[in-house]
Amino acid sequence: MLQITCPWCGARAESEFSCGGEADIVRPLESETLSDEAWGDYVFMRKNTKGVHKEQWFHASGCRRWFNAERDTVTYQFIRTYPIGAGASGDSHGAD
């Protein structure tokens, strides 16, 4: 069981959390102008990173806040966790 640091509650057991998958996927505006393929990319396509992966976590049995994490998918080490919006360093990259 992992230990995950909630930005508000501190280090907690994984059983208090649920993982939301890849972070920084922005919902496209004016979706009706997108091709089926572009929309499909947004809905279905996710990275399968080996190494540092940005992902969303939810402190479900805690303060019920969503936050972002950088986690190494090989070692399971969390590099950092941070509130959504607080870690943006030019890393919002649309619907990829």
């Binding site: 509650c9 907690r12 059983s15 208090e16 049995s61 805690g62 303060c63």
Partner: peptide, 10 residues
């Protein structure tokens, strides 16, 4: 104070 779970109850 804090929140957590006891078995499967919040």
């Amino acid at each position: 104070s804090t929140q957590s779970h006891f078995f499967k109850a919040g």
